[in-house]
Design a protein around this nucleic acid. Structure first.
Length: 579
RNA sequence: GCCGGCGUAGCUCAGCGGUAGAGCAGCGGUUUCGUAAACCGCAGGUCAAGGGUUCGAAUCCCCUCGCCGGCUCCA
């Protein structure tokens, strides 16, 4: 559904082989589970881009020991190199064959009559399956079971919860080991771990889950990101606005949030007999600003931007570090414009987006265009025009994208951009959404050249998505080693002995005088390597005598003694280039 | 919210029925040393909260809260 704009995916043939192998591994696993748990009801067992899984309903939860036993049985099946045999069967045969398997029966029931049913058999295990598979179990070169998790049957929380076992398989032990190594690397880059290690932010039980405190170093990073955001928006002619964190029930009634979004909102507060809600979105406030005066077509487009902190109730099980929280700051903007301006406005947003992404070193992303869902507001022409505008803007920048048919919001079509971090994981950040709903609800208008009142087009957009998530993505992307311009501490001055302390302080003062964030580390233990400080300046007798510092970079590169002025110049140059 | 796992000092973790330990960080001394962790000492914990079983619970059971992996949902 989504296409990768640029990328370093394994080639199609290899991916296809992996998918076949993983799918086969899923069968082998199901076979093993049924041997150990004859009562097991089996769900589905597909391959994925990273591995495979199979869902089971068993009398008790799987334990880690079960996984080991299952894996051993799988290894036996693989050693026996059992062939996979495909058979086309009739509906009657299928219903009979799987009469003990309620989930399979349901699947059979849901397959349209005109479609062929087939089974794949290896050893004594038969599964309803379209394939394809590898020729025999022996072709599964390297396999490993990873973990167990609960999963609703058919992803529906009203249906039974099954036990899902995840595993992966590769064409060689080497490739599997590489994958496992990558998982370890990913763990080291986990923003929650780095956030703690680098003392950037905190989440405290007594404050509340999903609520972030930014510690000084994280706060520094955030403020730099925000300053850059401000610059970018100045360049692109946005007006920055501010709005409060709460608003009266009446506002949310008009916007429709109390009807459609209430479950995601914090409970109201009573103030002087009025109910006030914490804002889950900024739009109604920006709309009130728009409505504060009669608008002329000459004023359009109007672009209101705000780093607006919103609060949403997220179910406890979905919270995740900075990526998924209950209070977050959207880099929000609302564009009010004429229909004929819309395409250029979207183009402007795309240009800003890619300017920002390249500044932070992201080159891998995927773009999707989501079109009209069944339930929607607004008329056909509006949807068509808006969707075309989005597509044309993408085409004008030669951007590849996938189409998510019917995936738009009920109030308008949208473009979403997911960023891939350094480990290939995707995070939704940028979103550009048309809104045919709120302008009506708030009766937005402008006076046209014809003297009549007209409804403006309204576009929501966020580029970083939320500052919290974006910094989280940055942390993982850089593995905590922020480029110089973003580093909370840019240079750590390290005196050799106490008699060098005074000189170290002077060096620090000179750095600070040139707007470089320097610190003196007078501790005995030097933890700077762990703290990922980009420049480490060692000062001892010889440096003190020559107005220099011995420079070691975070990368391990040693520059030897460098004059302080030269160093400041070099660093400032690097900072300006955001290198 | 649901399924499973987990919750011991600021951090990483050991202890898993007899009443709390290590390393790092912190503090005080000593050392003044060339590019991540010097030496000696000190302090730090109602073992997430509450309830129960037991002569005795960090260790077993229940419940609440929180975290982790998924499912669902999403910036």
């Amino acid at each position: 559904m989504e296409m990768t704009a640029t990328g370093s995916q394994p080639n199609g043939e290899l991916m296809a082989l992996r998918h076949r192998m993983r799918h086969s591994a899923a069968h082998v696993m199901a076979d093993a589970v049924i041997q150990l748990f004859p009562e097991a009801q089996i769900g589905i067992g597909p391959s994925t881009d990273e591995g495979f899984y199979y869902d089971f309903q068993v009398s008790r939860p799987f334990t880690p020991e079960d996984l080991e036993s299952i894996q051993s049985l799988m290894m036996e099946a693989i050693a026996h190199d059992q062939p996979f045999q495909k058979d086309v069967i009739s509906r009657e045969q299928a219903n009979d064959m799987f009469r003990e398997q309620q989930f399979k029966l349901e699947i059979i029931h849901d397959i349209p009559e005109y479609e062929e049913l087939s089974t794949y058999t290896h050893g004594r295990f038969v599964d309803l399956c379209q394939g394809p598979h590898v020729e025999s179990t022996g072709k599964i070169a390297a396999v490993k079971l990873l973990n167990v998790a609960g999963a609703y049957w058919r992803g529906d929380e009203k249906r039974p919860m099954l036990q899902r076992i995840y595993g992966t398989a590769f064409e060689s032990q080497d490739a599997l080991d590489q994958f496992l190594h990558m998982l370890e690397e990913a763990e080291k880059r986990d923003h929650r771990r780095l956030g703690k290690q680098l003392d950037l932010f905190g989440i405290h039980e007594d404050i509340g889950p999903g609520l972030i405190t930014w510690h000084p170093k994280g706060g520094r990073i955030r403020s730099i990101v925000q300053a850059y955001w401000q610059e970018l928006h100045d360049e692109h002619n946005y007006d920055v606005v501010y709005s409060p964190h709460v608003g009266k029930a009446r506002l949310w009634e008009t916007s429709g949030h109390l009807d459609f979004y209430r479950d995601s909102m914090f409970s109201p507060n009573d103030v002087d007999g009025n109910e006030y809600y914490l804002k889950p979105m900024n739009c109604p406030f920006h709309i009130m600003i728009y409505r504060s005066a009669l608008r002329s077509y000459r004023e359009l487009p109007i672009r209101y931007a705000e780093l607006g902190t919103v609060y949403r109730y997220e179910r406890s099980g979905v919270l995740h570090g900075l990526m998924r929280v209950r209070g977050f700051t959207q880099d929000d903007a609302h564009i009010f414009c004429l229909p004929e301006q819309v395409e250029d406005e979207v183009l402007g947003v795309l240009d800003m987006t890619f300017e920002l992404l390249s500044t932070f070193g992201f080159s891998d992303y995927s773009i999707s265009l989501s079109t009209k869902p069944e339930k929607h507001v607004g008329n056909e022409e509006m949807w068509q025009h808006a969707t075309d505008s989005l597509a044309r803007a993408l085409a004008r920048r030669s951007l590849q994208y996938g189409i998510d048919e019917g995936g738009g919001a009920f109030y308008g079509p949208k473009i979403d951009i997911k960023i891939k971090d350094a480990l290939g994981r995707e995070w939704q950040c940028t979103t550009v959404q048309f809104d045919f709903n709120l302008p009506d609800r708030f009766d937005l208008a402008f006076q046209g050249a014809d003297g009549g009142q007209h409804r403006p087009y309204m576009v929501h957009r966020a580029i970083m998505g939320s500052v919290e998530r974006f910094v989280g993505v940055l942390l993982e992307h850089y593995g905590g080693a922020f480029p110089l311009w973003l580093s909370p501490v840019q240079a750590q001055v390290i005196p050799i002995a106490d008699r060098h302390l005074e000189y170290a302080s002077k060096v620090k003062a000179r750095l600070r005088g040139s707007h470089i964030r320097g610190e003196v580390d007078s501790r005995n233990e030097r933890m700077n390597q762990i703290e990922k400080v980009p420049y480490m300046l060692v000062v001892g007798d010889s440096e003190m005598g020559s107005d220099t510092a011995s420079v070691r970079l975070r990368t391990g590169e040693n520059l030897g003694p460098v004059g302080i002025d030269t160093l400041i110049e070099r660093m400032n140059d690097e900072i300006i280039r955001k290198a």
